[in-house]
Structure formats: structure tokens, C-alpha cells
């Protein structure tokens, strides 16, 4: 019996001893939860380590996963700072008191929309980039099926588009929730839901993830996808026949944000990270990592492929109201009850 357990233990030890953590004596430590694409995360970490000497331990997860993790870890937080990813869960985290208030000295340099969002969250999160919502379509497929290019939100409810439109399910995707909130703000609540019902008839699938519709469109699985425009740019840059439309009625936007996790172990390093993330030089580097959002620092240069926000009719998106969990629950429940149960 002892030999049996002994051999078990030996196997375990023989393997694990090799993993002994090599302790580095650096200027400081920082545990980063990173939500954008991995290249961008790695670029940021490299630059941050170079400029501050702080050793970064980075984990990349999507913003929904990160938010779920921070929530689950709330009694004993393991992360210090959460960088990037849709602003929506950052705002939820701020509302639930999972993140820490911090006013970066760089705040005055930021664009209006970023300052406004920071104020609305009680300075518990701050925007690093913005991306407008839009419609992407596969031009080859549109020509094949003889579907006209959409110009406005209202076009999408026309019978010509039946079975051609894809959007994410607002219950699972922050992108789709932003769409729902945008429609409600553009058309007003009653007309907005009429629009969603009309759209529902044309939808071929509500995907789970927010950027899935444009990926499906790129591969010819659907003609039209309702997504963030920078996600559509990514597909177009890759070489897919994707065209981007900013709806004529005006459109909403997301603010990718950075938040300091409350109760983290290295708060000073976390603050340095936030200042660093708002640095115009650093924000300008985003294009190197194939990120095509508009940077939040007004001194930073947006990537040439980025959708030009000044050319897009942006609505005055109310982050405070539509980012609150009460309003979110109400709208999602209404969508669930009134729209998703309708036949197509």
C-alpha cells in the first residue's frame, strides 16, 4: 500500500519540481488581465516592462470571461489591472464595486467621450479606445443574391434581407446588447422594439459571440452582420470582401476601457499601467498589433484603417443609464419576452 502511494507521489513530485517558479527580483510586479487580441496584449506588456522595469504576469481572456473571473475572485483578488475589452463589463464591474477609483494625470488629454465615460463610472474605469457600431456585408455574396447594400438601420427590416442578417444574441454578447441599447436610443423605446421585431424576421442566426456575425459573413455563411466596425475592418484587412456601413440614423459605440481591480496586490504598479495605457505614444502603437479602434488620447494618431469617427454620425450614448444592471436586465427581459419568442 505504501509503495503504491509512494509511487504516485513520486510521479507527481518528479514532474512538478521542474516547475519551481523562478523568482525574479524586479522593480515590482503586476498581474494583468488582458482582453483584446493576444498580439496587442504582448506588445503592451513588452513596452511596459521596457519603460518601467515592472514584471508583468499577463493572462488573456475575453472581457466576459475576465469579468466572470474577477467576480468569482472578489473575496481574494488575484489580478491587479484589467485592460481592454468592451467597456460594458468594465462599467458593470465599476457598478458592483469590483474596481478601484483612480484619476490618471492624463485624463485632461483624453477625448470628450472618454472623459465623459470616466466621470459616469465614478472614475473607476477609463476609456482607451472607441469603436462605432455598424453593419458589415460580404459584397460578393450580396451581388450573388442580388441584395442591395444597406444604408440605414431601417433598411435591415426590409423583406429583401430575409435570412441574410446575422447579429449576436444580446443575452450573451456585449456587442449585441450595445446594438439593442443603440436602437432604443436612436428610435425611442417603443419604435426601437418594433424595429427589433422587424429585424428578427430577417435574422438567420443569433450568434453567441459578438464578432461571430462578421466572421461568418467573411466566410460566406451570411450576407450581413451587425458588429463593431473595427471587427469588420479586421476581416477586410485580412482579404475578405467585407464592406462597412455606418447607418444613416446614427449609431452607438463602445469604449474599450482599463480598470484597476479593487484589493489587488500591486496597486501602485496598476496605476502606472493605467497612466501608461493612456500615453499617446503607446496608443499610437496599436495599429502594429492589428487593432483598428480609435485611441482615446486626443494626441494619439489613429491607425489609417480605423473608421473615421468624425465621418460617422455618432449618437450621444448614455453609458450611465444603459450600462447599469437594472436597465440592462429590463431591456434584455423585454427583448426575451417580446422579440425572441416570435416566429420567423
Amino acid at each position: 500500500m505504501r509503495r503504491f502511494y509512494l509511487s504516485l507521489v513520486t510521479i507527481a513530485i518528479a514532474g512538478l519540481v521542474a516547475a519551481t517558479a523562478n523568482t525574479t527580483f524586479a522593480a515590482g510586479k503586476l498581474t494583468l488581465y488582458c482582453s483584446p487580441q493576444i498580439e496587442w496584449c504582448q506588445l503592451m506588456v513588452k513596452e511596459f516592462e521596457k519603460s518601467t522595469g515592472i514584471k508583468v504576469a499577463m493572462t488573456r481572456k475575453s472581457s466576459g470571461e475576465t469579468f466572470a473571473q474577477i467576480k468569482a475572485e472578489r473575496r481574494n483578488p488575484k489580478g491587479d489591472v484589467w485592460w481592454g475589452g468592451t467597456g460594458d463589463p468594465h462599467l458593470q464591474a465599476a457598478e458592483e464595486g469590483l474596481t478601484q477609483e483612480y484619476k490618471s494625470p492624463r485624463l485632461p488629454e483624453l477625448q470628450d467621450w472618454a472623459r465623459r465615460q470616466a466621470e459616469q463610472s465614478g472614475f473607476k474605469t477609463v476609456g482607451i479606445y472607441a469603436g462605432a457600431l455598424g453593419v458589415g456585408y460580404n459584397s460578393e455574396l450580396a451581388a450573388k443574391h442580388k441584395v442591395p447594400a444597406p444604408k440605414c438601420w431601417a433598411d435591415l427590416t426590409k423583406p429583401a434581407y430575409k435570412g441574410h442578417v446575422q447579429m449576436a444574441n444580446p443575452n450573451s454578447s456585449g456587442t449585441a446588447y450595445t446594438t439593442l441599447a443603440t436602437i432604443v436610443q436612436v428610435f425611442g423605446e417603443e419604435k426601437g422594439f418594433e424595429f427589433m421585431k422587424g429585424l428578427h424576421k430577417n435574422i438567420n442566426q443569433y450568434t453567441k459571440s459578438g464578432s461571430a456575425p462578421i466572421k461568418a459573413s467573411a466566410r460566406g455563411e451570411t450576407t450581413i452582420g451587425i458588429v463593431f466596425q473595427h471587427d469588420a475592418v479586421t476581416q477586410a484587412v485580412k482579404g475578405f470582401p467585407i464592406k462597412i456601413v455606418s447607418p444613416c440614423e446614427g449609431t452607438g459605440y463602445e469604449i474599450g476601457s482599463v480598470s484597476i481591480i479593487k484589493g489587488g496586490r500591486n496597486p501602485e504598479s496598476a496605476k502606472k499601467w493605467v497612466d501608461f495605457a493612456l500615453d499617446p505614444k503607446i496608443q499610437t502603437m496599436a495599429a502594429q498589433a492589428k487593432a483598428y479602434q480609435v485611441p482615446s488620447n486626443s494626441k494619439a494618431t489613429p491607425p489609417p484603417q480605423a473608421p473615421d469617427l468624425s465621418q460617422i454620425k455618432l449618437i450621444d450614448y448614455n453609458f450611465k443609464k444603459y450600462g447599469s444592471s437594472a436597465e440592462r436586465r429590463r431591456l434584455l427581459k423585454k427583448w426575451d419576452d417580446d422579440v425572441s419568442t416570435l416566429p420567423r
Binding site: S62, G64, A68, K71, Q92, S172, Y177, K208
Partner: peptide, 15 residues
């Protein structure tokens, strides 16, 4: 299985 995943990580965030 997918509904469970997105109930936790999705926008509704309903554990």
C-alpha cells in the same frame, strides 16, 4: 452547455 457558458460570461451575467 452553451447557454450555461453564456449565462456566466455573457452580457446577462446570471450565475
Amino acid at each position: 452547455s452553451t447557454s450555461i457558458f453564456f449565462a456566466i460570461v455573457g452580457a446577462q451575467n446570471d450565475q
